[in-house]
Computed example of a mutant assay.
Amino acid sequence: MASFFSKLFGGGKPEANDDSPAARGETVTYKEFSIAASPMRDGDQWRLCGVILKAVPGTDGQDDVQLERTFIRADLYTSREEAETFAVRKGQQIIDEQGDRLFADGAPTGRA
């Protein structure tokens, strides 16, 4: 019975599934960057979202640091697979337009 009330009133941990915005698809290498699609469920459709990643050398001989820039667009698709395909294309377009300027501020995370 406690499980029923926990689910009803939002107690407990949410279950991870492919509807989660954090669920990233396969990483695709493009130029010196990586792109990972991470579509978000929006009703019965999927919103185009993704992450552009770049490894930069750490300071004082430390391991590389992974910088990332997220992008979210208004485009909606009927399947997660279709949204992932177009997220990779959009990531490539952003890289072509902005390149290293995406990471010019040196911040570990941010928006593209």
Rank of each mutant, 00 (worst) to 15 (best):
D64Y: 06
R80I: 01
I52E: 00
D64I: 07
A74L: 05
Q93P: 10
A36F: 02
T78S: 12
G99R: 08
E97L: 01
K31I: 09
D75M: 10
D63A: 12
G50D: 01
F71E: 00
P57G: 04
T85E: 15
A104K: 13
V88K: 04
Q62S: 13
R47K: 14
A74T: 12
I94P: 01
S38L: 09
G91F: 02
W46D: 01
E82N: 07
V51L: 13
F86G: 12
G43Q: 03
E32T: 12
F103W: 01
E97V: 13
V65N: 01
T70R: 05
R47H: 07
D42Y: 03
T109E: 08
D42H: 07
E84Y: 14
T59K: 11
Q98G: 15
Q45H: 07
K31N: 12
A74Q: 13
I94L: 15
A83I: 06
E68R: 04
L76W: 05
L53I: 10
Y30V: 09
G61D: 08
A55T: 08
E81V: 06
R69S: 04
R89A: 15
K31Y: 11
Q62E: 12
S38F: 02
M40F: 06
Q62R: 10
D75P: 14
A107S: 05
S34E: 03
V65T: 08
E82A: 07
Q45C: 12
V65P: 06
E32G: 05
D64C: 14
I72Y: 09
L102S: 09
K90R: 09
D105K: 11
T70K: 12
I52P: 01
Q92L: 06
D63V: 09
I94Y: 04
A104L: 13
D100F: 06
F33K: 00
T78C: 14
D64E: 15
I94D: 01
R41T: 15
R73W: 12
G43M: 00
I95K: 00
I94E: 02
E81G: 11
V65I: 08
V65C: 15
T59Q: 14
A83E: 03
W46K: 03
K90M: 13
D105Q: 12
S79I: 14
R47I: 06
G61A: 09
K90E: 08
R73F: 13
A74E: 10
Q98W: 12
R69A: 02
L76G: 07
F86I: 14
E84N: 04
I95C: 09
L76H: 15
S79M: 12
K90H: 10
D75L: 02
Q66S: 08
Y30A: 01
Q93R: 13
P39N: 03
L48T: 00
D60C: 04
K54S: 10
T109S: 15
A107P: 11
R41E: 14
L67E: 11
F33H: 02
S34R: 05
D42C: 12
Q98I: 03
K54H: 02
D63N: 12
E82P: 05
F103V: 00
E82D: 08
S34C: 10
A107I: 03
L48S: 00
A83C: 05
S38W: 00
V56Y: 05
G61K: 13
G106D: 05
W46M: 05
R41I: 06
Q93C: 09
F33T: 00
K90C: 01
V56D: 08
R89Q: 07
I95S: 00
W46C: 14
